[in-house]
């Protein structure tokens, strides 16, 4: 479904260069729940941005359902993103000027032949547990409710992949568990998920877990020793390690 081969991203600021992602290889199969851990600045969010086609790799190739997204025009990659990828951000990312229901429907504007409709949006809001807030504006919701709405919005076009960038980073522990259980439920129903987080307590939610360190994808430790684990040069994932 997703094949990342030797992807590198270098940011240039003035005369200095920052290697945010360095020779990353990754494969994501349908139905998987991929968790990518890493400290702040390890390059995991840059990798997610590249998977979504929002950041162009400096080198390497990213294929989604066989399509090399590096060669697509802005219109084509936007179309692919609208149809195939649902996005959940660290913050809610809801538009303040439209209601909860309309927020869920916004992605249908960008997707030709979207299955999204008012009734489907209401169904999704029901599924994530906020159908009673359909006509409310985002400013009246709690953080947890906003996150649930953002998840419903990410699913409206029936994407094959859900990308989540530290979706529980701003939530309290109880709400974090509720949201992660929701992700697990969606994954059990067949949604492929790629999520990045810096919280090792979430490791058991993933069907595959990876770590990033200084731009490199590294082998993950056993969950029991995760908190004490320190990546080293020998843990760097090579192409042969990727299925």
């Amino acid at each position: 479904m997703i094949k990342v081969s030797g992807v590198t991203k270098t940011f240039r600021t003035g005369s200095s260069e920052i290697q945010a992602v360095d020779d990353v290889h990754l494969a994501v199969q349908p139905g998987e729940f991929i968790l990518i851990f890493g400290r702040s600045g390890s390059g995991k969010s840059t990798l997610l941005g590249m998977l979504a086609g929002l950041i162009r790799p400096t080198n390497g190739e990213i294929r989604i359902n066989g399509v090399d997204i590096g060669n697509l025009s802005d219109d084509k990659i936007s179309e692919l993103r609208a149809k195939e990828i649902g996005f959940v951000f660290q913050f809610s990312g809801l538009l303040p000027t439209v209601t909860v229901l309309e927020n869920v429907l916004v992605p249908t504007l960008f997707c030709k032949n979207s299955p999204g409709s008012r009734s489907r949006a209401l169904e999704l809001l029901k599924k994530v547990g906020v159908s009673d807030r359909a006509d409310a504006y985002p400013r009246t919701l709690s953080s947890g409710e906003m996150k649930r709405v953002a998840i419903a919005r990410a699913l409206i076009n029936g994407p094959s992949l859900l990308i989540a960038d530290e979706p529980t980073g701003d939530l309290d522990v109880d709400t974090e568990i509720e949201i992660m259980e929701l992700f697990r439920q969606l994954n059990c129903e067949g949604t492929t998920i790629v999520m990045v987080t810096h919280n090792p307590d979430l490791i058991h939610y993933g069907t595959q877990t990876y770590c990033m360190d200084r731009g490199k994808m590294v082998k993950r430790p056993e969950s029991s020793s995760f908190n004490k684990w320190e990546p080293g040069p020998d843990t760097h994932l090579k192409p042969k390690d990727v299925p």
Binding site: D74, S78, E79, L95, V106, F110, N157
Partner: peptide, 15 residues
């Protein structure tokens, strides 16, 4: 930021 969110949700530059 709002426009960036729209872009992440699938809006093209032309949109």
């Amino acid at each position: 930021k709002e426009v960036s969110i729209l872009r992440a949700l699938g809006a093209s530059k032309s949109f």
